[in-house]
Design a protein around this nucleic acid. Structure first.
Lengths: 239, 239
DNA sequence: CAGTGGTCTAGACCACGGG
DNA sequence: CCGTGGTCTAGACCACTGG
């Protein structure tokens, strides 16, 4: 048996209809749906919000409600540790914007992860990543300052931090440790990532090293689950 | 600057107050909060729903709103592939309930993953897992029928499928492949897992083998992110 | 400017759970 | 039974976006 609640019944009907709607197409507005189903606007609104919770639509104030499609984002040993390359593999268009880049002393946690001396200085690089024009991720990278003098100047407008490390410093970055969980981002990051709204999002933490060398990056990346269909996989080694 | 919206301002105030509230304690009701903040009940309700989205509280119809705490659930190569053991490691009390156990022919996807002959028969075992009395996960296990005759009888009231495999069939189960993503569960599973509400939840897929032997299990497990603080981690091998 | 979604009011009735 | 949260109405005003 189906829902006895009106707005869930509406959501189920609309979900079935949405199966044939192409990604990006506009969905009827709250006002139109209220008229069609003979309910008040708050009830129609609840139905659209339910569809948003099911990751089927995207809502933008002042513009409308649209069919959503998620972009596949696969994390595994076989893929390089780069946002841009991972997104391009799914056939989508990545973009990135530098939020800040500066130097400060490493805190205890960062020293431990990067195996630095007490009092060591580190770069902190904050970036926002987008996919097809929509904000999808927010990353904080911490890198030792020592072998990477002038990183801020070398970065410039470059989209890819790892490309700079490879081309300017001769470092090929590989994953050493990786962990992923689901967390509610702090307010400052939620503002960049979701416009202030704070639901749970992916939190990926990775410690990367130069191939055959020392640790060079500790990164914390928040990823929006409604935009990115993240899959994280491991396989046993074939002996 | 803080929120200009009343309900978000309330949520921020309540979030700060909740920091000192023990897990499980009751939170003021919608009615009480509406009075305290001089707003209508829908506005007070919106504030509590915002706290629920931030995973800070748990709401139960007819009972009340309570401070929530998540149980740590770590998935890695170092931990055994067992729900019960993983939960107990975090100091919480696991429970499980058998929903169904039967035999049918394997579908294409299952045949490929378990490396079975065309037309092979498989067991399907469906279970609900709880933590501290709250539903936390729903698992579907598919196992080859051939070496596991009478699995239904052997299972009985046993909580742990893997314990049965070890004690009755002499099989120690280890992970071969594991992948995790975030998905909206189908309606039938959402009913068991969240009482019908359909937001995104963890979906863990694992292919397990008998130590040094053939594949014995393909499992699809849905896990509630509000109940379980799932962390999935990999480390490079130390050579 | 018109149309969208975001917030809010002041009520109403219902479903549920516990005493 | 009462109090809880869940649903719903019929309006209102606002913020935002686009033409």
């Amino acid at each position: 048996m189906t829902s006895t609640q009106r707005y869930l019944e509406m959501a189920d009907i609309l979900e079935a209809e949405l199966a044939h709607v192409p990604v990006g197409a506009q969905v009827p507005s709250e006002h139109v749906l209220a008229e069609r189903f003979h309910v008040s606007r708050p009830a129609a609104r609840a139905a659209l919000q339910e569809l948003e919770r099911r990751l089927l639509v995207r809502r933008v104030q002042g513009v409308g409600t649209f069919r959503r499609g998620r972009v596949e984002y696969v994390i595994s040993a076989h893929f390089p540790p780069s946002f841009s390359e991972t997104v391009r593999l799914a056939g989508a268009e990545p973009a990135s914007r530098l939020v800040s880049c500066g130097v400060r002393r490493a805190v205890e946690q960062e020293r431990a992860r990067l195996q630095l001396q007490p009092g060591a200085a580190v770069w902190t690089v904050e970036r926002v990543f987008s996919v097809n024009g929509e904000v999808a991720a927010y990353a904080t990278s911490v890198l030792p300052r020592r072998p990477l003098l002038n990183l801020d100047r070398e970065l410039g407008d470059e989209v890819s931090l790892h490309r700079v490390l490879r081309r300017r410093y001769g470092l090929t970055v590989v994953r050493a440790r990786y962990r992923i969980s689901l967390d509610v981002p702090p307010q400052g990051i939620a503002e960049h990532l979701t416009g202030g709204s704070r639901g749970p999002v992916w939190l990926a933490e990775s410690v990367n090293r130069a191939a055959g060398g020392p640790y060079v990056e500790y990164a914390r990346t928040y990823l929006r689950p409604d935009v990115l269909d993240v899959t994280f996989e491991i396989e046993e080694e074939t002996h």
